[in-house]
Computed example of a mutant assay.
Amino acid sequence: MTTSGFSAFTDTNEKEAPEAPIVNASIPVLAQQGYAETYEGAGEIGTASPRHPNGTIIIMHGYDPFCGPEPRARLGQLIASLYDYYDRRGYAIFAPTYNSWKTFVDCATDMGNALVKGGWPIHRTHMIGYSMGGLVCRKMVAEKFVQPLSLSTLCTPHTGTAPWVPTPTPGAMSLSPGSADIAWLNHNEDADRAIRDRYQAIGVCYDDKSGKTHHDDQLINGNSQLAQNLGFGKTPYFKFYEQRDANLLTIGGVHGDCQNWPFAGQLMRPLIEHIAAADARFG
């Protein structure tokens, strides 16, 4: 059962149901360990060394409405699991924090400069961005800081957030449906557009308690998450929530919970497979 206000949101999004088939995913978690062990022990995340000859996996967190000291916290186990998997395969993990109250354009400049200043191996890179982080990744490409072999986004507002999402900061405003920054990125950035066939946009929908499918994650509709009509190479569409109780469906809860285990663990396979396919493609 949903609230009356939430039902109104659903009515808006059902008119824009994506054409992509929904995957009812139940994928084993790869490289799963305890949160404290992996994340506290991951001090080398953010450090490149000679043992990373294959390049760098770049991971960008999403918008933090509280501008807290650790915006990666909820994404931490996914970052740590990717570190566990790729460190032994010769990849460094660049998973920095940034001030998401700034526009994604400014954040991309900040992160691009940090990548260059830190001397990270960017001859071979793969990028992963959650929510706002996906736009930060794309803008880093547009500004020619990096030309990744692959880029994966999760719950990213490629054409803007839903109309009901508040925009109290410049960062949130840059993600809105009428954002000039998003419009410019989608239609005027040649470096980004030239390699969109390398991009994977992962979208999320869910069922409510009545069994009704909502084609959004409560903050971003499915078509925006899947970058419809932008020419991305892959657009997998996952249903992470099934028959959830009403008290678990707080507004924005699905979007935020996609960062958490075990839901984020289901993303390990599509992320790893996309990176592996790009490595095979480009040698």
Rank of each mutant, 00 (worst) to 15 (best):
M111V: 06
Y85Q: 09
Q147N: 09
A276L: 14
R269E: 14
G222V: 03
C107R: 03
R281H: 15
V165K: 00
L75I: 03
V165P: 00
M173D: 11
T125Y: 10
D64R: 00
N221M: 09
A276Y: 10
N13F: 08
A246I: 13
D106G: 11
G55D: 06
Q225Y: 08
T169P: 02
T109G: 14
A114S: 14
T10C: 09
A31C: 05
S7R: 14
N260H: 08
Q243T: 10
R51K: 13
G178N: 08
A278H: 02
L226E: 07
L271G: 00
A172M: 05
E14C: 07
G265S: 04
P65Y: 10
K234A: 15
E143L: 14
R88A: 15
D197W: 08
I59C: 01
I93C: 07
Y237V: 00
T159P: 00
N260R: 09
A92N: 08
L248G: 14
A48H: 06
V254F: 03
P148G: 08
R88D: 14
D64L: 01
A277R: 12
R89A: 12
E44R: 06
T109E: 15
R74I: 05
A191R: 07
L175A: 10
V116H: 15
N99C: 09
M268T: 04
C155A: 15
G119W: 07
Q218P: 07
R198I: 11
W101H: 15
T38N: 13
D64T: 00
K209M: 13
A191C: 07
A95G: 10
H123Q: 13
I27S: 13
I59E: 00
G211Q: 03
G112Q: 01
F145E: 10
S26P: 08
L154D: 03
